[in-house]
Amino acid sequence: MARLNYCEVESPIGQLLLIAYDENLVRIGLDAEDFVELRAAYSRKYRQTAECFPAAFADAVAQLKAYFAGELRAFSLPVDFGSGSGFRLAVQRFLPQIEYGQTLSYGQIAECLGNPGAARAVGTACALNPLPIVVPCHRVVRADGNIGRYAGGVAAKQFLLRLESAVEKPPAGHL
Score class of each variant (00 low, 15 high):
G117Q: 09
P54G: 02
V79H: 07
N115K: 15
P96S: 12
A55M: 09
A40S: 04
A69C: 12
G101N: 06
Q108W: 08
G117D: 15
G29L: 06
D59G: 08
S83V: 07
A32Q: 05
G82M: 03
A58M: 06
Q92I: 04
A69R: 09
L77Q: 12
Y46F: 15
S105D: 10
F57S: 00
S76A: 08
L72Y: 03
F57K: 00
D34G: 03
N115Q: 15
G107Y: 05
V91K: 05
A74W: 07
D31I: 00
L72A: 01
F53I: 06
R39G: 02
L113A: 08
P54F: 00
D80A: 13
L72I: 03
A32S: 15
A56M: 03
F94E: 01
G70D: 07
D80N: 15
C52S: 09
C112E: 15
F35C: 00
A41T: 01
N115L: 15
R73H: 14
S76P: 01
F35P: 01
L77D: 13
T49D: 09
A110S: 07
F35L: 06
Y100W: 15
G82E: 08
Q92G: 09
L113G: 11
A55W: 01
S83R: 07
R44V: 07
L72R: 13
A50Y: 02
G114S: 10
A66W: 06
S43D: 00
P78D: 00
G114N: 10
C52E: 14
I109A: 11
F68G: 02
Q108D: 12
